[in-house]
Nucleic acid binder design. Structure first.
Length: 568
RNA sequence: UGUCCUGUGGUGUAAUUGGUAACACGUCUGACUCUGGAUCAGAAGAGUUCAGGUUCGAGCCCUGACAGGACAACCA
């Protein structure tokens, strides 16, 4: 994996309420000063920016308090989980800059332990096999405001339960015909305590255990115990699991043989404007081809952001900036965008590229002559050095940088106006060439030979500097202009309408004929550039020597476009 | 008519645990500039959901409202 980001310096995460709780535990001498967190994804999809927040949080806590972090795959549902996802998740966590060392776990590593624990619960009269179907069980569960009723199978004998559960394990029963349930309290105000299902029969091969098991534990029966067996001290998860905590505590109460127990702490998941974050919706976008894949640069997935040109540091900084609380809110994408700009501004090489080419002929410049102009690679980083850019009589400039009838505050090229060609010469527009339809096809200028390098010895000023690419030296490239995937801040917020109705039709605009200066010729995939005055771009993996492809990561802040929209 | 959680500038967070609301993003000025970028300087913007109470003093504590969210998969 290639990443050219130099800015990988450690950031000290901003203290948040979880840090404070950990600090307090440490001060009280809990867990003998040990801190072990974990990142527990289900391998049923690609990781997104919300997971990045969790990853940074969990690894960040461990780093801050001298602890470690486990990577654990919660793979208790073989119908949804795939190895492809396991691979992508590991790749993404590493790319973000975190390392779980040899602490790689799977919930499926604990299938036997879980089974044994279930048998223990049966022996203690705390679990039973229920023969009812899903619908019946669901009805009997009641509702948040109505207590449930007990299953007629609730009082089976321990012996019978043991026998039946073993039968379930041995594949003697059909899928859906039996489940194992905990015997807790059908009248509990907490729905999760109403005899939750522990095991279901599923004759689906598992990505790791194959067909060894035909019964699988449910997440609720697996997660807390895995934490326990791994020795997790602080089990950080999102808010929706808050109501599950009493159940997890109940399981650990049945299991523990010391004072140790993992402490679960919940925080608010990340929401971002102009995108969706649920795996189900992201999967839908991928499956129904609204995007090119999980790593489509418009996706909020980590792989999508990577392909878009985001850097690990920018995502880590973003995660730190949004903070960690229990308040459910929505963060502004502009904060994410600010984080990449901030990082790329310091690290990306500057280069000139023209996206909407307009040909300019410098009529008093010698035909056939080429000059090599010195250009600074990164004004923010002197170490990046300089390069030369070829200059000739015919160049491309940006269509937006020329207006025949400019409004008041337009500083760029227009008839009679002089501007600077960056690192080259002052030029003055003398003529506009149009086709039969009246479209501008070419602009003629004259240059001031004394202004070589970009300054005139007489000290006269120009209002603007524009970028350019020499026609004979230009590398033709495809540039993919990405914008927000959705047109509204909260596409999933409207219950009446499908979120896909808010898809932004202009989220991808492909510019097939752009021109870039020759220095980028051998750029490797994913390397970052700033196209001066336009934005940050990176080389797409689709790029090849015959046809380079760039993705626009994010625009530069643009005072002119703001000025324009004011007038509108 | 339940249980649990949460309410601080536009957004995201902070407030040394009771001491007179801070930071970042965004917005708006201005300076500087061979990127209308970056940088620098400055400004506006909340009196902390509301109402009571305790206190010399409350965003922090208490009471009660109100608002938002989570919970009724053999999903995680």
């Amino acid at each position: 994996m290639t990443d050219t980001t130099a800015n990988n310096k450690e950031i000290t995460p901003k203290a948040n309420f979880i840090h404070q709780l950990v600090e307090k535990d440490l001060a009280e001498g809990k867990n003998n000063g040990r801190v072990l967190t974990r990142f527990p994804p289900e391998p049923n999809g690609y990781l997104h920016i919300g997971h990045a927040k969790s990853i940074c949080l969990n690894f960040g806590i461990a780093q801050k308090f001298g602890g470690l972090t486990n990577l654990r795959f919660d793979d208790t549902n073989p119908e949804k989980e795939e190895d492809e996802y396991v691979k992508s998740i590991m790749e993404d966590v590493r790319w973000l800059g975190f390392d779980w060392g040899d602490r790689l776990y799977y919930a499926s590593d604990f299938f036997q332990n879980l089974y044994d624990f279930a048998v223990q619960l049966i022996r203690e009269g705390k679990a039973y096999v229920d023969d009812q179907d899903a619908e019946t069980i669901s009805e009997q569960k009641g509702s948040p405001t109505r207590p449930g009723v007990e299953s007629p199978f609730r009082s089976r004998s321990i012996e019978e339960n043991l026998l039946l559960f073993e039968g379930m394990k041995n594949g003697d029963f059909d899928e859906g015909s039996k489940v194992l349930r905990a015997k807790i309290d059908m009248a509990s105000p907490n729905m999760h305590m109403r005899d939750p299902i522990l095991y279901r029969i599923m004759k689906t091969p598992h990505h790791r255990t194959g067909d060894k098991w035909v019964i699988y534990p449910l997440y609720d029966f697996a997660h807390g115990q895995c934490d326990y067996w791994e020795g997790i001290t602080h089990s950080v998860c999102t808010l929706e699991f808050e109501v599950h905590r009493p159940l997890y505590d109940w399981f650990i109460d049945q299991l523990k043989d010391s004072d140790y127990r993992p402490r679960q702490i919940e925080f608010a998941r990340l929401n971002l404007t102009y995108t969706v974050m649920s795996k189900r919706k992201l999967l839908e976008l991928v499956r129904d081809k609204y995007v090119s894949g999980w790593d489509d640069p418009r996706m909020p997935t980590i792989s999508g952001l990577r392909r878009r040109g985001y850097t690990p540091a920018s995502i880590r900084n973003f995660a730190d900036r949004v903070g960690v609380t229990k308040v459910e809110g929505t963060s502004d994408v502009t904060l994410l965008e600010h984080s990449v700009r901030e990082d790329l501004n310091k690290t990306a090489l500057r280069v000139m590229g023209v996206i909407n080419p307009l040909k300019v002929v410098i009529t008093n410049y010698p035909e056939g002559q080429t000059e090599e102009m010195d250009a600074i690679n990164n004004p923010e980083d002197p170490e990046a050095g300089i390069r030369t850019v070829p200059f000739t009589r015919e160049i491309y400039i940006e269509q937006d940088d020329f207006m025949e009838n400019p409004p008041n505050k337009f500083f760029r090229l227009s008839p009679g106006r002089e501007v600077r060609l960056r690192y080259a010469y002052f030029v003055t527009c003398t003529d506009v060439v149009k086709d039969d339809q009246g479209n501008i096809v070419e602009v003629h200028c004259t240059y001031d030979p004394a202004s070589r390098g970009g300054n005139s010895p007489d000290g006269r000023k120009v209002k603007s500097t524009i970028h350019w690419v020499s026609v004979p030296h230009a590398i033709e490239a495809e540039v993919r202009l990405y914008d927000r995937l959705f047109t509204v801040e909260d596409p999933a917020g409207d219950k009446e309408r499908d979120f896909k109705e808010y898809l932004n039709p202009d989220s991808l605009v492909v510019m097939p004929r752009c021109f870039v200066e020759p220095s980028v010729k051998d750029a490797s995939p994913l390397s970052h550039y700033q196209f001066e005055r336009l934005g940050y771009f990176n080389v797409d993996p689709d790029s090849n020597p015959e046809k380079m492809v760039f993705n626009r990561t994010v625009l530069l802040k643009d005072a002119w476009s703001k000025e324009k929209s004011k007038g509108a």
